[in-house]
Design a protein around this nucleic acid. Structure first.
Length: 751
DNA sequence: ATTGCCACATCC
DNA sequence: GATGTGGCAATC
């Protein structure tokens, strides 16, 4: 804590005060203020005070004017340290967010709010005299006051006993406790208890099972990095059920052994009790969990346990990457391809990139794990930047499910208009007869609708961008949301001239109705956003499916991942094509992943599993590769496409999104900006770049705001970062009263 | 965001 | 001249 001057970020969202303000530290506060301190300062005209966070300390200030003094500092000490400050700077630079939003993402849970999360305190008693005296008193009280005597015994045995426990265990009343206090034998105390999201008592500890040769090899490689403080990145590519989790657990064990800590990121959806239990069984109270289902109190308390060093392994969703651990030995990202690792609000960070940054700072091993790695990560592995480790076998001699494809064009030809084809109907029936369960997955992603031909499967795509054109009902037009290319919706299929050309879309409710009429004797349970709006019902539905042996579980994305029911032997993918043709260059990757994951839900028990993929385009390469469960072919194909069209990992894509409640002026401003960006890029950027748009977004209006987007494809580097930071300041200085700008680095999806 | 300041309009 | 309003710049 050095320096008489502090750089403070004001806790306000206004963009034009998003910079450091300097204050002098009064003598009374010297030594109490450090980086991360939460302070109140005078700000602006009048005697208004605001709160803010200290981001820098120095001995001199080059501000020419009289500095004001810091008024007060929060008693509870700094809210983040220098490492987290560097993370904030990383977030600001890479994701073009304000200082304050960067700071807020690393703050302890609850501390950004007005009403602070209160500590949970319990009242109890402690011994107030040395043991000798207590024993003497015990004898004196033996006959006269048996209740007090019992309490005294409790206090001798335990350092602290909660009042409620005393009452429960001894049957005494408050008078007895008070009597002991009056005698000076006991003293009232209040301690803080942590609200623990996990019931550790109920989870028996378990040791590592014997590892397979492949698992052991992976553990050895990663552990070597952990023990030698080497920041290596590993891509753990393992088929579903190949025991990746066991590999993490062993690496973490090693890290703990040598006094280091670990972070494990899991997608929110797979942060199931099953998963958490596995970690708790291995590491007990050394783990802390962080995810959105926790109450504010639980979150705050888990954070404290991490900060204090009691919890040394953090298992959590995306934001757990900001856990304030010291001396991190290994960071694991499970299912690293999952899109939920990308934040949707500012700062729109990708947990993988933040993890990479932190791993470098700690000299930690960085492990990315997936059965279907992101194309970006696999490319890094192929380039030799990541070390590729493959797990090709399942520890239990269980076979992968067999996958078959069912051609829905045939169904249409045969007059079956149902979204459940005859082969799938047969399989569902067969499963019922064998007393086994079925999961049906309805692939329905994104907001946009594409147009396809029911007769030949042809999908109308953009000439320039290799993404599907999006259907706009009002205009009866088709538009590309990358470059703006627009055509009128054709009346007949350009490929086969059939008039069965229509926009796509079927909901789970409709499918549910159909299932009821096709199989009146089968029980169906539906799981999607509508049925799971209540927080706990997600789990309740799955429990019901399992316990009551419901015949069919029908759902969207939610049923694709992480479920593990041994009696499920059949998985049906209702419209595999759907996710192939959203207006996103990652559509192929998404589809391959979804089909692979959902097929992996079949045959997790003893019995052989099977999956049936319904599609209008069985010859599509992604569908074929998913059927073969051939990731490598998929990757080779996809990386070639990305190379040809210059998509990540060959370049970065920056989105400049402009929104305004009034249409007037938005487009002209967007065009003006696009021209300026082009000029500046030509002047100041050293390398090839491409500028697309401005174009309308697939959802033209959100929250009453119209949207225009400019895309810039270039390789992100310091010069590009600088250009976009300048673009942001330029827009702020423009003080355009209506138009908002959001710059995003490699956004996911194109809404 | 919030404030004070300045120019200018409005009132009687 | 007194009072009111909108744009605008500055906030350590």
């Amino acid at each position: 804590m050095e320096g008489k001057f502090a750089g403070v970020i004001i806790n306000r969202l206004a963009l034009n005060i998003d910079r450091m303000f300097h204050y002098s530290i009064p003598d009374g506060l010297l030594g109490k203020i450090d980086i991360g301190s939460h302070v109140t300062v005078p700000f602006g005209n009048g005697n208004k005070t605001v709160d803010g966070f200290v981001l820098s300390l120095s001995n001199h200030s080059d501000f020419d004017g009289t500095l004001k003094e810091i008024l007060s500092v929060s008693e509870s000490g700094p809210l983040f340290d220098r490492e987290m400050l560097s993370v904030c700077q990383f977030l600001k630079q890479k994701y073009f967010c304000s200082y304050i939003s960067a700071v807020k993402t690393v703050l302890p849970p609850g501390s950004g709010r007005k009403n602070k999360v209160s500590d949970k305190l319990i009242r109890g008693s402690v011994l107030n005299v040395p043991y000798d005296e207590a024993f003497d008193a015990l004898e004196k009280l033996r006959d006269k006051a048996p209740k007090q005597c019992k309490i005294l015994e409790l206090l001798i045995q335990n350092d602290f006993v909660a009042d409620s426990d005393i009452l429960f265990l001894t049957g005494a009343g408050y008078q007895a406790i008070r009597a002991l206090k009056d005698k000076g034998l006991a003293r009232q105390e209040t301690v803080e208890v942590f609200r623990l999201p996990i019931d550790y008592e109920s989870i028996p500890r378990s040791a590592s099972p014997v590892l397979t040769e492949e698992q052991q090899y992976a553990v050895d490689r990663i552990c070597a990095s952990v023990t030698e403080n080497q920041n290596n990145t590993f891509l753990l590519h393992g088929v579903t059920g190949s025991g990746k989790t066991e590999v993490f657990l062993n690496c973490i064990e090693k890290a703990l052994e040598i006094g280091k800590t670990a972070i494990v990121l899991v997608p929110e959806i797979s942060l199931t009790p099953q998963m958490v239990t596995r970690f708790a069984a291995r590491f007990g109270k050394k783990i802390a969990v962080l995810h959105s289902a926790l109450s504010m109190g639980e979150r705050a308390d888990e954070y404290k346990r991490i900060k204090s060093g009691e919890a040394r392994v953090v298992v959590g969703a995306r934001s757990a990457i900001f856990a304030p651990l010291k001396n991190i030995g290994v960071i694991v990202i499970d299912e690293e391809h999952e899109t939920s690792y990308k934040a949707e609000n500012a700062p729109t960070y990708h947990a993988r990139e933040v993890a990479d940054f932190r791993a470098k700072q700690h000299g930690a091993a960085f492990v990315l794990a997936s059965a279907t790695p992101s194309v970006e990560s696999f490319y890094q592995a192929k380039q030799g930047n990541y070390q590729l480790i493959s797990l090709t076998r399942r520890p239990t001699a269980q076979n992968l499910p067999t996958v078959a494809v069912s051609d829905m064009r045939e169904e249409i030809k045969n007059g079956n208009r149902s979204c459940i084809g005859l082969s799938l109907q047969r399989e569902i029936r067969k499963n019922k007869e064998q007393g086994e369960q079925t999961i049906l997955f309805l692939n329905r992603r994104g907001f946009s609708t594409f147009v396809s031909c029911r007769s030949c499967g042809f999908v109308i795509k953009c000439k320039n961008c290799d993404v599907s054109l999006t259907y706009h009902k009002a205009k009866n037009s088709l538009t590309c949301h990358y470059c703006g290319y627009t055509i009128k919706k054709p009346e007949v299929c350009p490929n086969c001239a059939s008039s069965f050309i229509k926009e796509f879309g079927a909901g789970t409710q409709k499918v549910e109705e159909e299932l009821h009429s096709l199989f009146p004797d089968l029980s169906v349970i539906r799981m999607d956003v509508d049925t799971t709006s209540v927080k706990s019902s997600h789990r309740a539905i799955l429990e019901k499916f399992d316990k009551e042996k419901i015949d069919i579980l029908l759902g969207t994305q939610m049923v694709a991942k992480g479920l593990d029911f041994p009696n499920v032997t059949l998985v049906g993918v209702l419209a595999a094509d759907q996710s192939l043709f959203v207006d996103d260059f990652r559509a192929g990757e998404r589809t391959f992943d979804l089909i692979t994951q959902v097929c992996g839900r079949a045959g997790r028990g003893e019995k052989q599993g099977r999956a049936l993929i319904q599609t209008y385009m069985p010859e599509n390469s992604v569908i074929c590769q998913a059927q073969e469960q051939d990731y490598l072919s998929f990757y080779e194909n996809e990386i070639e496409l990305r190379r040809q069209l210059n998509y990540p990992p060959f370049c970065d894509i920056i989105s400049v999104l402009l929104t305004s409640p009034v249409l007037n002026g938005l487009l002209s401003y967007a065009k003006k900006l696009a021209r300026s960006i082009h000029i500046v890029m030509q002047k100041d950027y050293d390398g090839a770049f491409e500028l697309l748009g401005p174009s309308e977004t697939s959802v033209t209006k959100i929250n009453g705001r119209f949207r225009q987007r400019i895309w810039i494809k270039c390789k992100m580097n310091r010069k590009a970062e600088d250009i976009f930071a300048r673009l942001r300041s330029y827009h702020i200085n423009e003080k355009n009263p209506h138009i908002n700008m959001v710059i995003e680095n490699n956004p996911f999806g194109a809404i």
